[in-house]
């Protein structure tokens, strides 16, 4: 555990922030009790730190628990799911024990979220104005006029044209990219200190994807915002993030500065993930895919969850979950190959 605390993020270092991180997740466990004897361990002991001004990414296949980690931080896990253990400290307050009312006050104001599917995340029955004003009015006591002015300013700042007309539009009148910009503007409307972006570009066209990523980068730099971004696309992570956590079957298997993890990946899963991205070098050659399926989260193997698909699994892999090992300053991995090495 001590390894990940020695974070050496670019921004963190440059901001010179000391003491407790903005967000500090320790041993988070979110389980879904789906049957009499069936428990799905969606998040199973995740550690994560986000310092002020830092962009942290979570990468992994779908179903690895990365989205569930985000929803757990916002305490928005629906039954039959439940946070069963661990701690989430945010701005030096514990979130796991907060009441629902306190959490509601915090959501959208101090931690805001950008969603996976902009096509369905705006309410189809209300205008953009209504939704933005509702959001602002929920958290700040301002007049309708002030709120409208703020909405106009925000919408313009995320690069939307013809903002005054846009306010009276309904979601169906906007393109996917425009909707995601509106959702980002809404997320920023109460000046949050942490922005959680759950696959913010997955549902968009390729050209629009890069525009949204540029927008997020620009916002981060202008506001010195902290961002926790989730993606299955390690390219997205490499573009935006300072640090990255690779998740597999509800656990963080590798974490560290984004350059270290992408250039010298330690975990066999990370290596496989990187090998599956097409690059100019691999043009013309068949892409390597990871063999096999992600495991059933209710029947995890006793040892390393990746062992059944791992090309270099040893007998030790099957016996007990691997310990956390520091392979370089700030770069940690959970794999038996590195156990015992300093």
């Amino acid at each position: 555990m001590s390894g990940s605390e020695a974070a050496v993020g670019r921004a963190a270092a440059s901001n010179g922030s000391s003491g407790e991180p903005l967000l500090s997740v320790r041993g988070l466990k979110t389980y879904f009790e789906v049957g009499a004897k069936r428990v799905l361990k969606a998040v199973d002991g995740v550690d994560l730190d986000v310092h002020r001004g830092e962009v942290v990414g979570i990468v992994g296949e779908s179903g690895c628990g990365k989205s569930m980690t985000c929803w757990s931080i916002l305490r928005m896990i629906d039954r039959p799911g439940r946070i069963v253990g661990g701690s989430i400290r945010f701005e030096e307050e514990e979130l796991v024990t907060k009441s629902e009312t306190e959490m509601a006050r915090l959501r959208g104001s101090r931690i805001a979220m950008v969603f996976q599917n902009p096509m369905t995340s705006l309410n189809p029955a209300f205008t953009v104005r209504r939704q933005m004003l509702d959001m602002i009015a929920t958290h700040d006591r301002v007049s309708e006029r002030e709120a409208t002015d703020r909405a106009i300013e925000l919408l313009a700042s995320v690069g939307l044209p013809d903002v005054k007309r846009l306010l009276n539009d309904y979601a169906h009148q906007l393109s996917g990219g425009m909707r995601q910009r509106v959702l980002i503007a809404m997320a920023l409307s109460c000046n949050p200190s942490l922005l959680i972006a759950d696959e913010p570009t997955t549902a968009l066209d390729v050209t629009v994807q890069s525009q949204i990523l540029e927008l997020l980068e620009q916002i981060q730099q202008q506001r010195g915002l902290s961002i926790l971004i989730v993606s299955h696309d390690i390219g997205v992570i490499a573009w935006l993030c300072h640090k990255v956590a690779v998740m597999y079957a509800g656990r963080v298997v590798e974490a560290g500065p984004v350059t270290a993890v992408t250039q010298s990946p330690a975990h066999p899963y990370t290596q496989a993930l990187l090998a599956s991205i097409p690059t100019p070098d691999t043009r013309g050659r068949p892409l390597s895919a990871i063999e096999g399926q992600p495991p059933d989260l209710s029947r995890l193997p006793k040892g390393c969850a990746f062992a059944p698909r791992c090309p270099v699994a040893t007998e030790r892999s099957w016996k007990a979950p691997p310990d956390l090992t520091v392979v370089a300053p700030g770069h940690t991995v959970r794999c038996v190959l590195y156990e015992g090495t300093p």
Binding site: A104, A112, M186
Partner: peptide, 15 residues
């Protein structure tokens, strides 16, 4: 999605 989104934005359950 938009109902979850509204909740994630802190809009109260009643609203």
């Amino acid at each position: 999605d938009y109902v979850r989104a509204a909740r994630a934005n802190g809009i109260s359950m009643r609203t």
